[in-house]
């Protein structure tokens, strides 16, 4: 028994030593920035009782389907849908979830723009969302040029002049299928997922911006965060 028991008592010197550790400092800083009850709240503010607030979550749902179908497509390769009805189905799921993703994201963007969702120190939340949108456009574009059909050839040849005129064509060659596919299935999805995660963490940290009626100025908008009294989520 004694061999399994750990001595939990520690001296003040040991406590001081532990509190100086970089892991301890990082953990304390993270918990301070984003306490668990704010990260996954039990209740939401009552002003969230509107359909306009669901489009961010719908966008994330569509993104999950995009990633899952993209992973299935990566098992068989980009030409799978030409020769298999299952491949065609998965490819279509991938395409239509992208359509839904942008559909919901644009409505989410419109809603947040008219709410001035950058109020109350939420500038970085807005900026990460806007940058995610731009990176998503790049991810969609590289997907369209990876279809391995005449449509993708047409898009690539039309886009090359525009991209070359910016100088980006020196290292981003839309006529290079292998390069475009790598951007589409590795670099840009990693970017979209990272930025989406960052965006969600910022929404959780600062809370969802209240409507103008509830928070006319920045000061009151800061007070209304996601963990205040309200309706069960």
């Amino acid at each position: 028994m004694t061999t399994l028991e750990h001595d939990t008592s520690s001296s003040p010197e040991e406590d001081a030593e532990v509190s100086k550790q970089w892991t301890t400092r990082i953990r304390r800083r993270l918990v301070e920035m984003l306490p668990p009850e704010r990260l996954i709240p039990d209740r939401q503010p009552s002003f969230l009782s509107s359909w306009i607030y669901i489009f961010g979550a719908l966008t994330i749902g569509a993104l999950a389907i995009i990633i899952l179908t993209g992973m299935v497509l990566s098992l068989e390769g980009p030409g799978w849908w030409h020769t298999s009805s299952l491949g065609l189905f998965v490819n279509s799921m991938h395409l239509w979830s992208v359509e839904l993703f942008f559909f919901c994201m644009v409505i989410h963007l419109w809603g947040k723009f008219f709410m001035a969702a950058w109020r109350g120190s939420r500038q970085l939340t807005w900026i990460t969302g806007a940058v995610t949108f731009l990176v998503s456009v790049g991810a969609a574009f590289t997907g369209y040029v990876s279809q391995t059909n005449f449509d993708s050839q047409w898009i690539a040849t039309q886009a090359k002049d525009g991209i070359n005129s910016t100088g980006v064509g020196a290292f981003f060659n839309v006529l290079n299928f292998g390069q475009m596919l790598m951007w589409h299935i590795v670099l840009l999805p990693v970017g979209v997922l990272f930025l989406t995660g960052l965006h969600i963490l910022m929404v959780r940290r600062r809370g969802i911006v209240p409507p103008f009626e509830d928070g006319v100025n920045d000061k009151s908008a800061t007070v209304a965060s996601g963990t205040q009294e309200g309706t069960p989520s």
Binding site: W51, I52, I54, F103, V106, I107, W110, G111
Partner: peptide, 10 residues
């Protein structure tokens, strides 16, 4: 359709 959905959501 996006504009219509936006209006309906509000």
């Amino acid at each position: 359709l996006m504009a219509l959905t936006f209006i309906l959501a509000i």
